[in-house]
Every structure is written in C-alpha cells, then in structure tokens.
Design a protein around this nucleic acid. Sequence first.
DNA 1: TTATAATGTAAGTAAGCACTTACATAAAAT
DNA 2: ATTTTATGTAAGTGCTTACTTACATTATAA
Lengths: 203, 203
Amino acid sequence: MGDSKDTQSTRDRILEVALKLFSQKGYLGATTKEIAKEARIAEVTLFRHFPSKEKLFEEVINTHSFLPALKELMPEIARMSYEKALTEIAKRFLETLSSRKDLIQIMHSEMQRYPEKIHKIYHAFIDEIFKILASYFGEMQKRKILKGFDTEFGARAFLGMFFSYFNVHEMMMHKKYRHVDKNITIREFVKIFVRGTIKGGKQ
Amino acid sequence: MGDSKDTQSTRDRILEVALKLFSQKGYLGATTKEIAKEARIAEVTLFRHFPSKEKLFEEVINTHSFLPALKELMPEIARMSYEKALTEIAKRFLETLSSRKDLIQIMHSEMQRYPEKIHKIYHAFIDEIFKILASYFGEMQKRKILKGFDTEFGARAFLGMFFSYFNVHEMMMHKKYRHVDKNITIREFVKIFVRGTIKGGKQ
DNA sequence: TTATAATGTAAGTAAGCACTTACATAAAAT
DNA sequence: ATTTTATGTAAGTGCTTACTTACATTATAA
C-alpha cells in the first residue's frame, strides 16, 4: 500500500508503536489490535513478525536498551573545574533519563511481572553509570582535589539526588506538579555536593 | 461460615487483599475473582461491597493513604546534633517508605492509567515531607549552625539521595541486586550532606 | 420466633483478549 | 513469466474478564 513516509520497515514501526503503547498502558493494557492499528498494519502481520505478544515485549526492551553518553563525556570533564564537571554530568544524566522516559516507565510498571528481564537491564545501566562516576571521584582524590570518601557511595548519593528529581518531576508529576526549575536544581544540588566532598574546611 | 480469625470485617479483608494483589499484579492483572478467592469470600460479595473494580481501587488507595511519622519525630530531633538528627530522619524516612512499599508499587505501575488520583496522593505526601525537613533546616540556619542555602532544595537533595537508594534497592532490585548496607549508606550520605551544608570552611 | 441483613452457590452474559486459519493481492526476485 | 515474499481482509476459536441474576443459607436482631 502506498504510504506517506516508508523509510521504516514494518518491523521497526511495530517496535516503535509497541514501545509507546506499552509505556503508556502497561503490558496488559496495550492490546495487539491497538498496536497493529497505530502502526497501520493488519493485526495478523504483527504475529508474522513476532510469534507472541510476550516476545514482542522482550524485543522492545532489548532494542531500546541503554547506552549512556556519559563515557564520551569523561575526557572533556577531566579538564573542567570540579563544580563545572559535576554540573555537566548532572545535565547529561538528566538528558539521558529524559530520552529514555518511555522505557523507564515500562520498567517501573512491569517490574513485578517480569522481574528477571527488567532487573538485568536496570542493573547493567545503573552499575555502569555508578562505576564511571566513582572512577572520576577516585581520580580527583588522587589529584588531592577531593577529600577521602567512599567513591561508590559518593556516586550513589550524587546521582540519587538527580534521579529523585527526575522521578518526581518527569515521571510522577509530569507537568501538573508545581514547576521546579531544572537548572536551579542542578546548581543547588551541585553546590551542596561540591562543598560536601571537596578538600579543605574542617575534619 | 466459622473461620479462624474473624476480627476483620469482610470489607476490610477485601481492601487488604486488593492492596496486595493490585501492587503485585497491577490493576489489570489482579482479577476480582482472585481477590475474592484470597479474601475467602464469594466474588459476588465483593461486588456487594464495592460497585465496581475501579471503585474498589480508589478505596484501596484512599484507605492506605500516607501519614508520615516524621512530624512526631521533630521535637526529639531539635535536641540532637545536626549529624545525629539527619541520621535519624534518614532512618525514619526509609522505614516509612518500606512500610508503604505496596502502595508505592501501585502508584508506580498505575501512574499513567490514573494520573489525577495518583498525582494528588503523591503530591500531598512529598510536599508535606519536604516542608517539614525544610523548616528544620530553616531553624538550624537561624541558630547559625548551617550556612545559608535554599532550604527546600536542601530538603529535596537530602531526601532524594535516600529515595533513590530506596528505589534501587527495595523497589527495583528486591534482594537480587548486590547488597549495599543500609546503615553504611545512611552514614556516608549524611556525612557528605552535613559537610555540604554546615557552617564553617571556605566560601 | 420471626424478620432482616449478610453471605453463599450456581449459572450465565456480553465483551474483549491473544492468537489462528484461509484466502486474496501486490510487489519483488528469480 | 513465474515463483516467492510481504502484506491485506475476514472470519472465527477458545479463553478470560467484569459484572449480573436468582435463589439458598446462615446469623443477627426484633
């Protein structure tokens, strides 16, 4: 059938629509009929590409897996001041989360139903990002810029502040909640954290 | 029918089982048949107490609404050292979250499907807890123990660290994830935050 | 004791679900 | 030109769901 823009394969369009509907309505709430309709294909075509709804769900999750852009950022970061570096990391972290909002939504809703799959994905993502940040803290401690503290707990504390901000303002309250400016939040959180970890002062 | 322990009314038992099943399987995944069976009543009895599954869901959420024990804690806290106080607040906060795990799970999963209801509940809970902590910070600033910083951002940063810890270790990864000790986490997070907000040092 | 309220059993309805079968059409590959 | 591949239409299967109806049973209250 002649359609408007058909650079995407049928399979890709199904995956894209499925991501959207799974994240909006949950696994049970999104029906194969609706997915097919929104992808402008026949329902039977969906089952020709994916043997079952569950296999489709797995494919959606695997296809859109995480790959944090944080690693690429690290070389630039090494040359910045500590405060500037943390600000950039926070910004990039929040951007990464925002761009994967749909997937994070799925993971939240389907956590209980598909624990193994979801845990594995979440685990991989979180561990990687913690390690990258912890190794940055380790470097800064060697250069005597930071005081001695457990770098992994530091990474967890720092990203935790922002992950919660993201959770509250982008996942839970989307729009309806009283607006709290993202840049001011970053500035204030970073200020507290910098002062809490930088060398100098008492103790 | 003569049953073992029947201090609870039928209605209460339905609500209790519904909370459990909704949080485990989501709104769509928990069936009225199963709720009735687990509450050891006939399915029709469920519909005599609640006109529809949706009304039952609303009642579950309203019945188990939040009431943080933090307020009661504040008088004791005022007499402690800053670090000790934050440690106690963190502990109590994590305990509150743990005891409401089921409800938080429901709210995560059904967020998209019932935005208005869930937002309202979440909003009320989070705002209250932020305000209580911010007012404590305000007091401590007046007593010249803390440096000047925006108390609300401070409260968000502090609780954010712990909320993320809770999310990762109790909501997302329950047990399967590598264990990170709760008390050590509290100690390390508090240390960073105390140093980041207490008076003294440079700037 | 009798009336009333709460529950149970049993059967069923209409709708929606994932998924299938059978056959037609159109384009691409051979 | 013919086969192969990707898609479509249409109808339907068997299952589960939320929810209902009709009637029987039990316990409490009057």
